[in-house]
Computed example of a mutant assay.
Amino acid sequence: MENLLTDRAFWVNYWEQKPDLSVNIPANYMFHEQLASIIKREKVKTAIELGGFPGYYAVFLKKYFNLDVTLLDYFVHQPITSKLLQKNGLEEKDIRILETDLFKYTPEQQYDLVLSFGLIEHFNDTADIIERHINFVRPGGTLFITLPNFRALNGWFQKRFDPDNYDKHNIDCMDPRLLARICEEAGLEVLQSRYFGNFSLWLHDEEQKPLALRLLKRTLWLAGKILTKVFPFNSRQLSPYIILEAKKT
């Protein structure tokens, strides 16, 4: 339990506060270019999204690439996932769902592609959580992990104006060199480990924040977008995400 920065109660509360989660997933969903490239290059047939409730990327992979997809999370509210599938023209049989504790579950199979989006930063032991991902990757398969970069301006904003949310994240793991080293020591070939995205800024439960804070966030967001539109670049200071791609030999 000391490895966890969140618990089940946190996630139940987190998802219950969200508005309608049943959205239509577009073809240009975040990281779509990276995923399309991996799927085409590696001829991916099977994939598992870890910690992915309500299953946006599982739906994306099934909807646009017709992969054999599994979603694993230790909190799954089936009605939400069912509605999400319906919204995207899919049926419940199209995605296998495993509601289980990743730290107690032994993989029954391995996959061509193992993904997580915003998961590993909620644990103190980064090497351990990545190793648990690797356990699902078949030999020759690909590991693809993304996480927020709270060492950027967005992180300062979170720490200054939403410290409770900021404290639920392991800031030390937000280092592409660290992530690459962990994978290399586990025997994987690192294809990329880098900052991603020109600029973004967000607030957890923004609609519940004071108006002045929302206006400040909007002002900084616009300024950052204009700057990186004129001078587009990925950097530790501004990029909102980190992506890691590695191959199991």
Rank of each mutant, 00 (worst) to 15 (best):
Y29L: 15
T126M: 06
T228Y: 14
F161V: 01
P139C: 02
L201V: 12
D112K: 09
L178P: 05
A246R: 15
Y195T: 00
H204F: 08
E185F: 01
G55H: 08
D128H: 04
V44D: 02
E33A: 10
L203I: 08
N234P: 00
T249Y: 11
K18S: 06
E33N: 15
T100H: 10
S193L: 14
E91S: 13
L5H: 10
F231C: 04
N154F: 06
A9R: 13
E33H: 14
L191R: 13
E189M: 11
L71I: 06
T142E: 02
F157I: 06
G118V: 04
P54I: 01
G118T: 03
F117Y: 09
D162F: 09
N88S: 06
V69Q: 06
H122K: 08
W221P: 00
P26D: 10
I242F: 06
V44C: 02
E92Y: 08
I242Y: 08
P19E: 05
R132T: 03
L90N: 08
V69D: 01
S193I: 04
D94Q: 11
A58K: 05
W156D: 11
R160T: 14
Y166I: 03
Y29D: 03
R138H: 07
R132K: 13
P240V: 07
E108Y: 03
G52C: 10
Y166G: 01
I39V: 10
E91R: 14
W202P: 00
N234E: 13
R236I: 00
F233L: 09
T70W: 11
E206A: 15
Y14R: 15
F136G: 02
N28L: 12
L188M: 15
V76M: 07
K18I: 00
Q208F: 07
E33F: 12
I171L: 15
A152R: 07
Y57H: 10
D68L: 04
P79V: 06
E185S: 05
T70D: 03
L222G: 00
L115K: 10
F75I: 09
G141L: 03
R160I: 01
K229I: 00
D162V: 07
D94C: 07
R151H: 14
E16D: 13
S200T: 09
A180F: 12
V230Y: 13
Y64S: 04
D73L: 13
T46W: 11
F150E: 02
P148A: 07
D175C: 12
R177M: 03
V23L: 13
Y57L: 06
N165L: 07
G55T: 04
L191E: 15
D125V: 05
F150A: 00
T6I: 12
H77K: 14
L115H: 05
A246L: 13
E16F: 07
A246W: 14
R132Q: 14
N135C: 04
R236A: 01
L50M: 10
P139W: 11
F123Y: 13
A127M: 02
E185V: 01
R160M: 11
L90E: 02
P240H: 05
Y29N: 11
S239K: 08
T249H: 12
V23G: 03
A212Y: 11
P79Q: 12
Y64R: 07
L179A: 02
Y64W: 11
